[in-house]
Amino acid sequence: MTGHVPHDGDRVRSPARLPGRVRREWAALAAPTASPARFAPHVADGLPAPVRRWLAHAVAPGAPLSETAELVMHGEIRMGTWRPFRAHQILAPPRGLVWAAATRLAGLPVSGFDRYSGGTGEMRWRLLGAVPVVSGSGPDITRSAAGRVACEFPLVPAVAPGPAVRWEPTDDDRQAVAYVRVDREEFAVTVRVSPSGRLESVSLLRWGNPDGRGYAEHPFGAAFEGEARFGDFTLPRTVRAGWWFGTDRWPEGEFIRFTVDEAAYR
């Protein structure tokens, strides 16, 4: 399946509803990759076999290794019950991300953003654009948001063979561990790849408070289904993510499901 790739004239821009300071963070993260190298098989030499298989499948020969992605998505998010949402995202691992989305609560519009940029994390969500619903910042939010940046790096495949990721093989030919440093912390992200090269899942220990008992490390991950090609890159089409991934608490911890509708790389 081929997804929609925005052209220069309709490239995703920072949502107008974002505060000015967050729009500036979006613009900084969206800066084009400086002089990107071109992908060739030798770029993956020395990487674990599952990673070489994934990159050969996901990146077209000669593709510029652009390390910033602009994404448009739709799906469901669990806020008490599952609610539909639409979102725009700028993703530039390991530097950061801004995810801006809109949904409805009791029939009323809720919009806001999650971000990790400039070494800090934050979330701000408002009902009718005015009434605070969820707000958070500080060290715990920052650490959790940094883990999200690390977990989402496979949506920007060009980052995988670069200096931001250190790879180690495992005994399983379908898995490798990516060590992703986001500012001061390094995250061990397990990447699972099918024999055909399709990305199957990512998982890590992520700082969070999913059960309301205080912040701690919990299993977190995402399962990928289907694929779509966006220009030079093949991405998972559908993503299911949440806490306690790979455990019997996964049905309780899953909180977001989305489909990638558009992707553009810079």
Rank of each mutant, 00 (worst) to 15 (best):
R213Y: 06
L155G: 06
P64F: 02
E70G: 10
G112V: 00
R143Y: 02
D172R: 13
G107H: 02
R53Q: 09
Y265D: 04
R104F: 02
I90Q: 07
A37I: 02
L47N: 03
F245N: 07
S201Y: 11
V131Q: 05
V156W: 12
A228K: 14
V202A: 08
G121V: 10
L235Q: 09
P48V: 08
R143P: 02
R181A: 14
N209W: 06
G121S: 06
H74N: 14
G197Q: 04
F85N: 11
S201F: 11
R124M: 06
R184Q: 13
G9C: 11
T120V: 15
R17V: 10
A164M: 04
A263Y: 05
P84M: 00
M1D: 03
R95Y: 14
G118P: 11
P93Y: 07
P161Y: 06
R184L: 12
P15G: 01
E70V: 12
R184Y: 01
P93C: 04
R115I: 08
R95A: 10
R23N: 02
R83L: 15
H57S: 08
R213W: 05
A100P: 04
R23D: 10
G212L: 06
G147Y: 07
P36S: 06
E262N: 04
D211Y: 03
R23S: 11
G138P: 02
L97H: 15
E25H: 13
P139V: 01
F258T: 04
T2H: 15
F245I: 04
D261W: 01
P93F: 02
P41H: 10
A34F: 03
E25D: 15
N209H: 04
R115C: 13
G96D: 06
P6T: 12
A56Q: 13
R148H: 06
D8T: 11
A106L: 13
W54L: 15
V189S: 09
D140S: 12
R126A: 14
A60G: 03
L235C: 09
